[in-house]
Amino acid sequence: MVENKELIRVVEETVSRDDVKYVIGYKRGTYGFQIKPAFAYSAKDAKEFFYSPLCAKNLATYPLLEEKLPLRRGEEAEHKKIGIVVKGCDSRAIIQIIQEKGLEREDVVLIGIPCKGVIDPKKIAKRFPKQSKFVDVEENSNDEYVLEISGTSHKIPKDELLSDVCKSCEYPNPLLYDILIGEAEEEFQPEHFNRVDELEEKTIEERWEYWEKHFQNCIRCYACREACPLCYCKTCMADLLEPQWVRRSVNLSENTAWNVMRAFHLAGRCISCGECERACPVNIPLMELNKFVEKEVKEMFDYTAGLDTEEKPLLGSFRPDDPEDFIS
C-alpha cells in the first residue's frame, strides 16, 4: 500500500533538490477512472500527486519526449535530472533505455513504487459506465478493489479488474530506484499469459483469420508507438520515405507490415507494461504479439529485457550455440 502522504513528501523533497528539473507522477483525471500524468516543478506542485491502482500509465515515455532546443555558441546544455515515479515495469523500461544508451543513469531520479498490479481502464469503465466525475479506487487487504460511487461503496474482487499483463507480471517491485516508497511487495507466482496459449492452440489458418480481423481495423494512428516507452527512435522506420518500408495507404497489407515491424522491433526490448494495448483505439490485442515474442526469446536465447543496464541488446549480440534447428 502506497501512502499518498509519503509519496507527496518524497516528491517535494526530490523536486526541491537543486539538480532536479521536475518530477513526473500521477494526478487525478477529469472524469471516470482516468488519471493524468502530473509534472511538479516546485514543492507546491507536488500536492496533487497521488497513487492508486488506477495509475497504469507508464511514465518512462516522458524523459525521452523532453525537447532539447538547439544551443547557441558558447551556451552549455543544462544537465538537470528528471524525477519519475516508477512501478516495476516502468523501472524495467528505464533500465532497458539506459542499456540502449537512450538515457544516462544520471539523467533520472527514480521514485520507486512497489506495485500490486494496476486496473485495466477498459474493464473498469465497462463495469461502471458513465462516470462524469473522477472516482478513486483503493485496494484492501482481501484482494478486493474498493470504490465509492455517489455514496454507495462497491467491493470488487481484484481478479475481475486487474490488467491482463499484471497477472503475468514477474517483477512487481522496481528493479532500479533511488527512493522506494513503502515496503517491497512479496514475490508472488505470476500466471501464464493465457491469451497467447489460447492462440497457439489454434490452427495456423485460424490464427491468421484472427489477426486479419484485427489488422484490418488498424487506422495507423501510431498511438501504440507513441505510447510505448521503448519506441523512441528519432525517425521511426514507418515514417521513412526513402526507403519506404511501409506505405502510407491503410489496407490489410500495409497494416500487417506495420504491426509485424512494431512487434519485431520490440523483440527482446518489450518490458510488458501493456501501454500499447491500452492506447490502441481499435482494440488490437498488441500484447499478445509482444508476450509471444518475449516468451520465444526467453526459450530460444534465455534473454529477458529490462533487467540489467549492462546487458547487451538481444538482436545486436549472439552466442555461437544459439539454436539453429530451423536451418538446414
Binding site: 495456423i204 483469420e209 509485424v260 504479439l289 526469446v297 530460444m300
Partner: peptide, 16 residues
C-alpha cells in the same frame, strides 16, 4: 540467425 529465428516464430504466430 537470431533475427530470422525470431521473425520466423513471429510469422508462425500470426498465421503464416
Amino acid at each position: 540467425r537470431r533475427r530470422i529465428a525470431t521473425m520466423k516464430k513471429l510469422l508462425e504466430f500470426l498465421g503464416i
